[in-house]
Amino acid sequence: MSSSIRPSSDRLLSLDAFRGFAIAAMLLVNNPGDWSALFHPLDHAEWHGWTFTDWIFPFFVFISGISMSFSLARRGQIADRRAVLLHTWRRGATIIALGLLLNLFPYFHFESFRIPGVLQRLGLITLLAAPIALWCGWRAQLAWFLGLLAAYGLVQTVVAVPDAQGVWHRGSLLPGEDVGAWLDRTLLGGHLWVRSKTWDPEGLLSTVPAVASQIAGLLAGRWLALRGRDPAEKATWFMVAGLLCLWAAQVLDAWTLPINKNLWTPAYVFLCTGWGCLVFGVFYWLLDAAPLPRLCDAMARRFQPLVVLGMNALFLFALSGLVARLLGLIHVAEGVSLKAWLYAPIKALPVDARVASLLFALGFVLVFYGIARAMWARGWFVKV
């Protein structure tokens, strides 16, 4: 296999491709030409339920768990586990700091900026999951996974809290009325998502089941690392596990807390873990486990753009957030932002407004693929 396709022998090509798929999807859904003109799958579910867009963040969490399993296992073999833990905690803290910096930019209003965020959650679950990854076997990790989901579901069901108007609720999952929303208002009041103000989709309490999503990735990583198992068998069991998780998600959705991304409910964890296993299982079989080497080689060439994106995913996500904000802040004329100026020719095309909005997003993805490709060609890989 050409080194230009497989960057190094110790990397799992399918994991890079899956990560690239996730970052490409995130760039696509986060940067439409017009937020009021979206195809339904390219927008989050309004509350309960899910769309394609609701896959993406949990996929990053699942991938992070797989990567953590590999990384900590490798480091733990050659270094003291406490030193490895401190290194991982520094990485998590750096990701949190980067997320806070992006939320502060460009005005740096410390009294009102949003504290939670996507990068903040990724960093926080890295801090919380690292000890579990280092000191727990697969049975203990499974117990943590189930225990965190059960504890979260119990708290959300039985604890009574007041809403923003002071009305008390027990077990309510309406926006701003659940326990997580109350906790966020109590501890982070004035620093929540500007579109809601009384709750946050990356709030504190819902980070608990997000850690469970990370642990699902840890378990997937342990399965991948098992010796003596045929790769095709591993890929098959990813498919089986994915289907079982989707079945569990439907049961939980019907009988307990419904599927809800903003609340990161247990049903949502199983749903996204199930889809994560299925999508990654396909990548793994095609790129690493297929019994015909020529097939793997052909698929490696086909999926190289995703691999290129996946090898600098965190950098690309952070840069895209910065660029998207600058496109709205920079004005080329009175009342005309740089984004509006760039979008105007596309918006003028004789197509549906949703198609025009999608075309702008696709252009955004292509620009960032160009950046990723240039970095990859020069061997520039940004690590935190």
Rank of each mutant, 00 (worst) to 15 (best):
L192N: 13
L174F: 01
D200A: 07
I215G: 12
H191Q: 12
D184H: 07
G203N: 02
G190F: 08
T186V: 00
V211K: 05
H191S: 07
G176Y: 04
L205C: 13
L187N: 02
I215K: 08
V179G: 00
S206T: 15
L204C: 02
T207I: 05
V211T: 14
T198Q: 13
T198F: 12
G180R: 01
E202L: 09
L187C: 03
S196H: 12
S213W: 01
S196C: 07
L183R: 03
V194Y: 14
S213M: 12
L183Q: 11
G180V: 11
A216G: 15
L192A: 14
D178I: 07
G203Q: 02
P201Y: 00
H191L: 14
G217A: 07
Q214V: 09
S213A: 14
D200S: 07
G203T: 02
H191A: 06
G203F: 04
A216M: 14
T198L: 13
D184G: 05
D184W: 04
L205T: 11
G189N: 03
G189K: 00
P201H: 02
T186Q: 11
P209V: 00
L174N: 06
D178R: 05
G190D: 05
G217E: 08
A212Q: 10
V194E: 15
G189V: 01
H191D: 15
P175E: 01
D184M: 05
G190I: 06
L187E: 11
V194D: 12
G203H: 02
L205Y: 07
R195I: 06
T186G: 11
P175H: 04
E202P: 08
G189T: 01
T198I: 15
Q214L: 12
V194I: 10
A181I: 13
E202V: 01
G217M: 01
G180K: 04
L204K: 08
G190E: 13
L204H: 08
A212P: 13
D178Q: 04
A212T: 03
D184K: 04
L183E: 06
P209N: 01
V179P: 04
W199H: 10
L183W: 13
P175Q: 05
I215N: 09
T207R: 08
W199V: 04
S196A: 13
A212S: 15
T186A: 10
P209W: 00
T207H: 13
E202K: 01
V208W: 05
